[in-house]
Amino acid sequence: MLRSEEQVFEAMLDGWRNQQLARNLALSTINGRERKVRAFAAHADAFPWTWSSPLADEWFGDLRAVRGCVRSTPRGYQESVRPFCDCATVRGRQFCSPTWPLSDNCALPEPSSAAIAPRAETRWG
Rank of each mutant, 00 (worst) to 15 (best):
R93C: 12
R38G: 09
A107S: 11
E121P: 03
L2Q: 09
P98A: 12
D45E: 14
Y77G: 04
R17S: 01
S112K: 04
E10N: 02
M12C: 14
Q7V: 11
V8C: 12
V81R: 01
R71T: 08
A46D: 07
A114I: 09
D45V: 11
A56H: 07
F40D: 03
A88S: 13
F47Y: 13
A88L: 15
V8P: 08
W16D: 08
S4F: 04
N24G: 02
R3I: 06
A107V: 10
K36V: 07
G76C: 06
S112M: 02
S113N: 13
D104I: 06
A22R: 10
R123N: 10
F9W: 05
G15H: 02
S113I: 14
S80N: 07
Q78T: 03
V66Q: 08
A11R: 15
P74L: 00
M12T: 04
A120Y: 10
Q20G: 03
N18T: 11
R93E: 14
T89G: 07
V37P: 01
E6H: 03
G76D: 12
R33W: 13
R123F: 11
A88Y: 05
C85T: 06
N18S: 14
G125R: 08
P98G: 03
A42T: 10
Q7M: 10
K36E: 15
A41G: 11
L2N: 10
T29A: 03
E34G: 04
F40C: 03
F60A: 01
L13C: 00
V81I: 07
A115S: 14
P54T: 02
S80V: 05
Q78I: 13
S103H: 06
R91F: 06
V90A: 14
R119S: 10
C96A: 07
N105H: 13
A46P: 07
R71F: 04
N31A: 01
T50R: 09
C106L: 07
D86V: 00
T89N: 07
Q20M: 15
C87I: 06
C96E: 07
N31M: 03
